[in-house]
Nucleic acid binder design. Structure first.
Lengths: 338, 338
DNA sequence: GAGCAGGGTGAAATCGTTATCACTGAGGTA
DNA sequence: TACCTCAGTGATAACGATTTCACCCTGCTC
């Protein structure tokens, strides 16, 4: 547990001032070749490494990027984290990870934490469009980029899927196969993804003059348990839907488990199509038809936008909407009785 | 972008010294009720929040826990991260996330980074038993806990699955169903999980006097691509195995995709059993038989052990081995010709 | 040869906390 | 009365870097 050498030790060892060492370190300001050599040698000799903590402190800004997502265990966010991390580390930033669990209090605490920590920037997926406030960060001069969802409460740069198009395309696919009674299970409409996916779904219905039965639309937390529960409810209906539209990856998972539990066959007994691609979806028999998101692309983009803001970019707020990709497999077929 | 109030501002506003404010803040040392009241009021009035950066700097130790894993996108690590995070945040620590990608250079850089950052502690999954050196951290007085794998190069507290038992039980299950030619696909044996899982597998074979055919054992990176490739190799063998033992979650995924690609039926054409449970495994028809790890338990335990070390615990190094849980589904049946 | 530009350097201030030390009274004890 | 203890307080020195400022040269221009 030997003590770390500091810049002072290096200065002393090289017989120069700390200012000179600092200049060598950051390559700022003029230093004669001789002194530079002596300093570099002293750094070597002492195994000196500058304290990042001291640096951050002095600069009053740390080299951390705060990442506030609802849950790393949701594969969507996992991929997002990975993409953000790759770009961040390439720029000498590191990631501070927070799981808000969609809990506004927890989220608020984390936002405050990021501000207290004077992070360089924050990428977040707001738990609520209207209530999540990034104000504490913006006030502290910390740039924020919102991903997957908008933050209308505190407008910031945003990167998200074209949710409406994704949901519409998926619903159209269902309708094109003759489905008319379609159950829809969606994440909370208080968040962008839930609201717009519902909008896209309804849009597709309206295009062909279908009026959706309110009994067929379920909306709540975008988790597996809800997906399963809502699916059971739909299947219990006297006039059961012929297809189920699932609003995100976890809901899809829950729906599939509920369907399996009831020993129903996809797509013969019930058709399924949902948002978000997962690595195992092609393994199922039949494979599940989904609208896939360019998650890595979203993460990279968000991080790049954040870096620009950190660098001082003052251009007006931007919103980037990314296109979904429809992956058609075999979970949708024409219902038997049509 | 109004300037944050500092402790000085609070002191001035309350008409006391910064020392007194600090005492109120940390509840250390005696402060009269009157001054305490004035200080608390000033804190309110100014919306003061202490700078965590300054605190860390002063203490020469930040409130961060470094987490060095091979890849967040591997669901095993995802769950681990989640468990660690829950405990960490409950103790006012936050998570610094690093993906080493099993790359020793990258890993070395991250270890150095953690040392430079003077983190409070590190939880890591070493890329190599013998070569991953946590020395830089230990030298700097930063405690380390190793998860999933041992670090023989620099011994530290360790939490891992009882890999041998897990693999042995799984292999026994295969053998009990009459399989004798069993293909095994394993992660690198330079890491604990790879080495011990192979050992467990071989042990089960030897118990019943089976000598494993070297052509049936594949060992490399524990990723999906390798799982698929090795599976194809096994299935190309003139004397094809009747069962495949897969050494981790990603390998299993790859194997399943390869088997699907060849339109073989599980378990009739080929039986499959592997390590690691995944949420979708029950969805497949048939469900996949696996040995599940108590991942959250591992993460929590590792974090708790780390917290003890951070608190100054000096007891001898500990190694905790957790028991696997066999989840028997229907991917293993007695081969037709037995 | 006076003046000036600018390269090269070090001393010292600074970032926001906490810890140490010294000081003042008040109260208790011999 | 003299001494000690201890609660309550403030000045001040760290922590390890960067940055500003001032200074001293050297070499150039007019």
């Amino acid at each position: 547990m030997k003590d770390k050498a500091t810049i002072k030790d290096v200065a002393q060892h090289a017989g120069v001032s700390t200012a000179t060492v600092s200049r060598v370190l950051s390559n700022s300001g003029p230093v004669s070749a001789e002194l530079r050599g002596r300093v570099e040698q002293a750094i070597q000799a002492l195994g000196y490494r500058p304290s990042r903590m001291a640096r951050s402190f002095r600069a009053q800004r740390s080299k951390f990027i705060g990442l506030i997502i609802s849950d790393v265990e949701n594969p969507f966010y996992t991929s997002l984290v990975r993409a953000v991390e790759d770009v961040a580390y390439a720029h000498d930033y590191s990631l501070l990870l927070c799981n808000s669990d969609e809990d506004p209090d927890k989220e608020r605490a984390y936002i405050q934490f990021m501000a207290d920590e004077r992070v360089a920037g924050v990428i977040g997926s707001p738990a609520s469009e209207a209530e999540t406030s990034f104000a504490a960060l913006l006030d502290a001069g910390i740039p924020v980029v919102s991903v997957d969802r908008r933050s209308t409460c505190t407008p910031v740069d945003t990167v998200l899927l074209d949710h409406v198009t994704a949901a519409r395309d998926l619903a159209r696919h269902l309708i094109a196969h003759g489905h008319q009674r379609i159950g829809a299970i969606l994440p909370n409409t208080s968040i962008t993804s839930g609201r717009e996916r519902l909008a896209g779904f309804l849009q597709a219905m309206e295009e062909v003059g279908l009026t959706p039965d309110p009994a067929l639309i379920h909306e709540s937390k975008g988790i597996e348990a809800f997906g399963a529960q809502a699916t059971h409810a739909l299947l219990d209906l006297p006039d059961r839907p012929t297809a189920i539209f699932t609003g995100n990856n976890l809901i899809t998972l829950g729906a599939l488990k509920a369907i399996q539990e009831r020993r129903l066959r996809i797509p013969d007994d019930i058709a399924v199509a949902g948002l978000d691609e997962m690595p195992w979806m092609s393994l199922l028999a039949p494979g599940i038809t989904v609208a896939a998101q360019p998650i890595h692309e979203m993460g990279r983009l968000a991080m790049h936008m954040l870096l620009e803001r950190i660098a001082g970019d003052r251009q007006p707020l931007r919103e980037v909407k990314l296109a979904p990709r429809l992956v058609i497999r075999s979970s949708v077929a024409t219902p038997a009785f049509v």
